[in-house]
Amino acid sequence: MFDYIISYYNYWMYAGLMMIGFYGMMAKRNLIKKIIGMNVFQSSIIFFYISSSVKRGGVTVPIIKHVAGAHGSHGVDVMQYANPLPHVLMLTAIVVMVATLGVALAVAILIYRRYHTLEEDEIILCMRKG
């Protein structure tokens, strides 16, 4: 049972973070709070991908230290290094996350200029009045 929990708890961690972000996106009425919830949500997905690149048993960062022979598998022991492919994909995802944050904040500033509030229910009241 303890072994089972050790092998699977990272998935439960990312599920919990995703639930926190999702609740923030749906239940909070302030627009900045919704954007913060979106940030937590995206971070949880990046956490899931990065945790799928971990290998147990003395792995190091994916930087090749020394190459002994230049033939065959080029002298690299694959089991010593972490999986580099999720790192590359998540580098792209982090930068896209900040771009999404910038556009969302720009739209929030526009909404504030027009309705002079950031609360969702007051914005809906203003829209119904005119």
Partner: peptide
């Protein structure tokens, strides 16, 4: 701590700084 140092660099500069 999960041996993803490049992602950690990018997170510290881009997400925690510029965000």
């Amino acid at each position: 701590e999960m041996a993803a140092v490049d992602v950690a660099f990018t997170e510290a500069s881009v997400s925690a700084g510029i965000g």
